[in-house]
């Protein structure tokens, strides 16, 4: 086994900041404070679904940034 192969594991995150960001986004997706929401947008899209849509695009952006930083 070469030195490079031995050094592959364990993999490591660049910083705890990213863990915090992904946990925060997951908690925000719960949207528990508006659980009983009945509001809709455009007559057909529940507001809480719109909230989830936005969060997923934020997640996509966060992942894109993360890929720039984390290069094991």
């Amino acid at each position: 086994m070469t030195g490079t192969e031995r050094e592959l594991r364990p993999f490591r995150l660049p910083s705890l900041r990213w863990t915090g960001i992904f946990v925060l986004l997951t908690l925000l997706s719960l949207d528990i404070w508006a659980w009983d929401s009945k509001a809709v947008i455009g007559g057909w899209l529940p507001v809480w679904v719109f909230h989830l849509l936005v969060l997923q695009f934020v997640l996509a952006f966060a992942l894109w940034r993360f890929t720039q930083e984390w290069k094991p």
Binding site: L52, L53, Q56, F57, L59, A60, F61, L63, W64, T67
Partner: peptide, 11 residues
């Protein structure tokens, strides 16, 4: 690339 494309398309 696949990692950030996933949450871009799925929603």
């Amino acid at each position: 690339t696949a990692a950030w494309l996933y949450p871009t398309i799925v929603p």
